[in-house]
């Protein structure tokens, strides 16, 4: 069922991970991703995995929910893994068959690649699980507010993002409903070749688009009725303010990145 998609889902809670300023969390994720791309040894990946494990523990988000988040990208993980495993040239061929060959470097690369993607996704998901979409976009708006000087419509972009997030569950539910309605008229989404399957989507996509446009139109009117007139002069219910814990967390993040870079410099 479509309802099982956890993308962008937020698990309310009151742990430190939840209470951190969203800007801090976005910056931490940037540091974390940078560190992942700098990591080049099992020691470094071990460190990153440990960091993630601690964060997961602190956030009290179940590991199961995080692993579930990997499901939609499982194909990509396996695919990249196999690609690296079977096609990396190098010394020490362990196994070969036709164009495929497994080398020591390949094995290493594949393991790193899979680890990197998995850690990357789980880390990012941990942020979305512990940060409500609205404070996430809020944080993003504040972080990027400097760009307004260069006429980047930061407020509009973040507004688009938060509305998109708000309507994901509604549109998923709608898709489910339309699918059921067309199935009730004998639509078949499972059998047939790729072309037939693509054509079977028309009865879902057309009503879905029409409904999305209608919703957009009505929402725009409703927003105007509530005095929306762009970002100018807007105030906020929740004003973001860095706390001591934010500075602490950011310092920790920078230290870990420095550690990973040091490990790389030491050739580890």
């Amino acid at each position: 069922m479509l309802k099982d998609i956890t993308l962008g889902q937020y698990f309310p809670g009151n742990t430190v991970a939840h209470r951190l300023d969203p800007r801090t969390k976005i910056l931490l994720v940037v540091l974390y991703i940078t560190a992942l791309f700098c990591a080049g040894s099992f020691a470094a990946y071990g460190l990153m995995a440990a960091v993630l494990a601690v964060c997961v523990r602190v956030s009290r988000v179940g590991l199961r929910a995080l692993v579930k988040g990997l499901k939609p990208v499982l194909f990509i993980i396996v695919f990249t893994g196999l690609l690296n495993l079977l096609f990396t040239p190098g010394e020490g061929i362990l196994w070969a068959w036709g164009p495929f060959h497994v080398t020591e470097t390949g094995l290493r690369n594949a393991a790193f690649m899979v680890l990197r993607i998995m850690l990357l996704i789980m880390g990012t998901f941990l942020m979305t699980y512990t940060t409500s979409p609205i404070s996430l976009t809020d944080g993003l708006e504040r972080l990027l507010s400097g760009l307004k000087r260069f006429h980047v419509p930061v407020h509009e972009l973040t507004m688009i993002m938060s509305i998109a997030l708000r309507f994901i569950p509604t549109l998923i539910e709608e898709t489910d409903k339309i699918m059921s309605a067309q199935k009730a008229r004998g639509a078949d989404f499972e059998s047939g070749n790729l072309m037939e399957k693509a054509r079977a989507l028309v009865p879902i996509l057309v009503p879905l688009f029409i409904s999305a446009f209608r919703r957009a139109d009505e929402l725009a009117t409703a927003m105007e009725c509530r005095c929306y007139h762009g970002g100018e002069g807007r105030t906020k219910l929740h004003v973001l303010q860095y706390q001591r814990r934010d500075y602490a967390a950011l310092t920790l993040g920078v230290l870990i990145l420095a550690g990973v870079i040091a490990l790389r410099a030491c050739g580890l």
């Binding site: 979409p133 708000r166 509604t170 009505e218 105030t235 219910l237 929740h238």
Partner: peptide, 21 residues
Amino acid sequence: DNQIVANVVEEDVAFAPENLG
């Protein structure tokens, strides 16, 4: 469904006063 802007109740209710500054 088509007039709720935010995905937290309080944020949605705050929308108009926020717009009004």
